[in-house]
Design a protein around this nucleic acid. Structure first.
Length: 767
DNA sequence: GATTTACGCCTTTTT
DNA sequence: GGCGTAAATC
């Protein structure tokens, strides 16, 4: 296979780049992932580098996984060694598990996620006598994180970030770091910082790893922060083979510490760097690309690229003003139905600025029986039951992990109440020792009250049993023994519905299976635990879903045939809290650019003056987003002129109530989509929340028996798939459940609505 | 210790 | 308007 044959001239230059630093400025849809993967293959193919000397860094696990697959596809199977493709964080954690003893941590350190951080901060606030109302833990933590991302420690905090409460934050920062240290724990930011510290402080280490990873490639470079930048500097100080790909117009994580200057200043930071621009877009229609470019050209903080495409100009973009958020959702839903009828293979996304906007879309889609997937709902590893088990494992391996201990010491309830725990943590704090140690002392102390003491002893016995086996038993065995030992199932069933408990137990089974698989692959315990700690909700994105809902942030790096940008209103997008500075506004505009450029073929824009907002400005109608005003009117239908804002001038279909512009919309009146009746044979009862709706649908779908979780073995039918039935016509599989030896399918057909079918008899044809 | 009521939040968040 | 956490209560 000739690697260079599928590349355009600029891509080829990038892929063939020799040694030394290189910056690839790659516009949206210009094939930047392709460039990275081909370059990796090219380096190996031409024996410029051995696979193990190559490190490719991405920001998400998902991106890393995809890249790994694509490289493998290019290289063919079975090589002696593989290039390392991972996220910044997992790369660092892996190295730290080998080297962190040099910094005085034990190799079995814990990783604190946001939840753990918050719990720890609450304790600290209490201990420091600060009021949570004045200094909310989230706020404090975000400021600490901001400081960490700028390489500012507690000592410099006050001078670097002067503010009325800087003294307080500095003090809390100090305590926070100390407590992490005592707990033998790192937060997400520390993972990078400690790695930087290690390479900085130990030249032999720096040398060793620079020689090891002598070719480094970075994706999404515009979103790197200070510590990541420093890490790259340290790792490439010897060989200078740093190859970064990014797009300054897609830098949207400033609020998380990403520094757009990293990409803007690359040539200054790495003298002699080659710069290559990828300006041909392969993804979108001409009109979509033109629209995106026009909008982003209003920004000043950019290097400037001129994107062009050979694709057809395509449809005009449609902009829709609706009479309420509800109508907006109904309109989007109608469009989606029509689009899927026209082309069932479309992948469609509804993108919005803030998560709470998903609600209306979910309700309408659910009611209409259109299968969809939301990105950003609870991730697998974020589930309560999984986090409980992870906490058990953490305390078994790291007895200093107070946060893990406190999470599970009374889960399930074993008579160790709040007052007992308060006393114990207080004591631990005074002595400066792990809570577990105090627990052990308390359990041995005969003076302490019988009841609590007994409970502690029983807990310690269990724990000691697992600890004794932690090095001999497999992880799966350990997990099983925990689940049984604590009678977790019993606890779940006690205060949750049967379905919910069953679903949680299924998750646990899945978790144990994942542990088994991990062990079969020869991974260490920590490799498994680290993956669990570092995986995110984005990783759960279902690529088969026809309709996906997510925030604009989550959509970066993805592409869809059809994109709906919803909530295009001043105050929401750009968000009112990002309208204060020019820089903030530019970031919002980049976000808009990201949203537009996700679309391959069709783009729809939606807004409503009457979104129900809470807060101070509730009630007053919103204006259309300034980004709509920035779009060339000839490309957008319905965005501009006064009559576009007027009532009922659409020949769309029968819904003239959609455009009720002023007060006439009655909240009690059923919205159009409900009035017309659902296409399903059973109308939905009035339910309050999405959660309720989901549970209701789940129940109706599982009518007979709550089967086992979806098994993708056999026929290869999956929920979300488009199928054809001889009698009923085309439809979408809503769910697939095992019932006995069969699979029960719930399918929504566009003609006849929802049907329950047995896979074996239905003779469905996948489309 | 568990269950109920009450208050407050309501931007994005790759790890 | 709804959801999650935090006092309040039995």
């Amino acid at each position: 296979m000739d690697l260079l044959a599928d590349l355009n001239p600029q891509q080829r230059i990038a892929v063939q780049h020799g040694r030394g630093p290189a910056l690839v400025l790659a516009g949206a849809g210009s094939g930047k992932t392709r460039v990275i993967t081909y370059r990796i293959a090219y380096l190996i193919r031409n024996a410029a580098a051995r696979p193990e000397n190559i490190l490719a860094v991405t920001f998400t696990n998902k991106a890393a996984g995809e890249m790994r697959e694509r490289v493998q596809a290019l290289m063919g199977p079975s090589r002696t060694s593989e290039p390392r493709v991972s996220t910044f964080h997992s790369f660092c954690v892996r190295l730290l598990r080998r080297e962190i003893h040099r910094l005085g941590y034990r190799v079995d350190f814990s990783i604190y996620d946001t939840d753990d951080q918050r719990k720890l901060m609450k304790q600290i606030l209490k201990d420091a006598g600060k009021d949570e109302k004045v200094l909310p833990p989230r706020e404090v933590l975000s400021r600490i994180s901001f400081a960490k991302n700028h390489n500012i420690g507690p000592e410099q905090y006050v001078s670097q970030f002067p503010s009325p409460d800087a003294e307080d934050i500095g003090e809390l920062f100090e305590r926070y770091n100390t407590r992490l240290r005592q707990g033998n724990a790192l937060d997400f930011d520390d993972i990078l910082l400690k790695m930087v510290l290690l390479l900085d402080r130990f030249p032999d280490q720096r040398n060793y790893y620079s020689d090891w990873f002598r070719y480094i490639l970075v994706d999404e470079y515009q979103d790197t922060n200070r510590p990541q930048y420093e890490l790259l500097c340290l790792l490439t100080s010897k060989h200078q083979n740093l190859f970064v790909v990014g797009d300054e117009d897609q830098s949207i994580y400033k609020f998380r510490g990403a520094d757009i200057q990293n990409i803007l200043r690359f040539e200054r930071d790495f003298p002699g760097a080659t710069t290559i621009k990828l300006e041909q877009n392969y993804r979108s229609t001409g009109n979509i690309l033109k629209l995106a470019t026009t909008v982003v050209e209003n920004n000043t903080e950019r290097k400037g690229k001129v994107l062009w495409t050979e694709n057809q100009s395509g449809d005009v973009i449609t902009c829709r003003r609706s009479g309420s958020a509800r109508f907006e959702a109904a309109w989007v839903c109608r469009q989606i139905r029509a689009l899927l009828d026209e082309e069932p293979k479309y992948r469609i996304a509804i993108l919005y600025r803030a998560n709470f906007l998903s609600r209306n879309f979910e309700e309408v889609l659910l009611a209409e029986g259109i299968a969809y997937a939301v990105v950003g709902s609870v991730a697998f590893f974020g589930r309560m039951e999984i986090k409980d088990l992870l906490a058990y494992l953490r305390i078994i391996f790291n007895p200093e992990d107070d946060i893990a201990l406190l999470r599970i010491i009374n889960t399930p309830p074993r008579g160790i109440g709040a007052s007992t725990l308060d006393m114990l943590t207080q004591k631990a704090l005074e002595k400066g020792v792990p809570v577990l140690q105090v627990v052990e002392e308390a359990a041995r102390d005969p003076r302490l009250g019988g009841r609590a003491c007994k409970a502690l002893q029983r807990f310690l016995e269990l724990l000691a049993g697992w600890q004794a086996r932690r090095d001999t038993a497999t992880m799966a065995e350990l997990l099983k023994s925990i689940v049984e030992g604590i009678e977790y199932k019993k606890m779940l069933e006690k205060h949750e519905s049967a379905e919910e408990a069953a679903s949680r137990m299924e998750n646990i089974d899945e978790f144990i299976r994942a542990a088994e698989e991990s062990e079969e692959r020869g991974e260490t315990v920590f490799e498994f635990l680290d993956r669990a700690s570092l995986s995110s909700e984005l990783d759960t994105l279902d690529p088969n879903a026809r309709v996906s809902l997510m925030t604009l942030h989550s959509a970066k790096g993805l592409e869809f045939d059809v994109v709906f940008l919803a909530g295009m209103e001043e105050g929401l997008f750009p968000h009112s809290q990002s309208m204060n500075s020019r820089a903030d506004l530019e970031e919002e505009r980049r976000l808009c650019y990201v949203g537009i450029t996700r679309a391959r073929r069709k783009l729809f824009l939606a807004w409503t003056p009457f979104r129900r907002n809470f807060g101070p400005d509730a009630g007053s109608p919103s204006l259309p987003s300034r980004f709509l005003e920035e779009m060339p009117p000839e490309l957008v239908e319905g965005s501009r002129s006064a009559q576009d804002y007027a009532v009922g001038d659409d020949d769309d279909d029968d819904d003239d109530d959609d455009d009720s512009f002023s007060g006439e919309e009655d909240e009690d009146r059923a919205p159009a989509w409900k009035k017309r009746g659902s296409i399903n044979d059973t109308p939905l009862p009035q339910l309050k929340s999405i959660a309720e709706l989901r549970v209701y649908l789940q129940k109706t779908q599982q009518a007979a028996k709550p089967g086992r979780s979806e098994q993708s073995a056999g026929a290869g039918l999956k929920s979300g798939m488009r199928v054809r039935h001889a009698q009923f016509g085309d439809g979408i599989i809503l769910s697939r459940q095992r019932v006995g030896n069969d699979f029960k399918l719930i399918v929504t057909f566009s003609r006849v609505g929802r049907k329950t079918l047995i896979e074996r008899y239905a003779k469905l044809e996948a489309l």
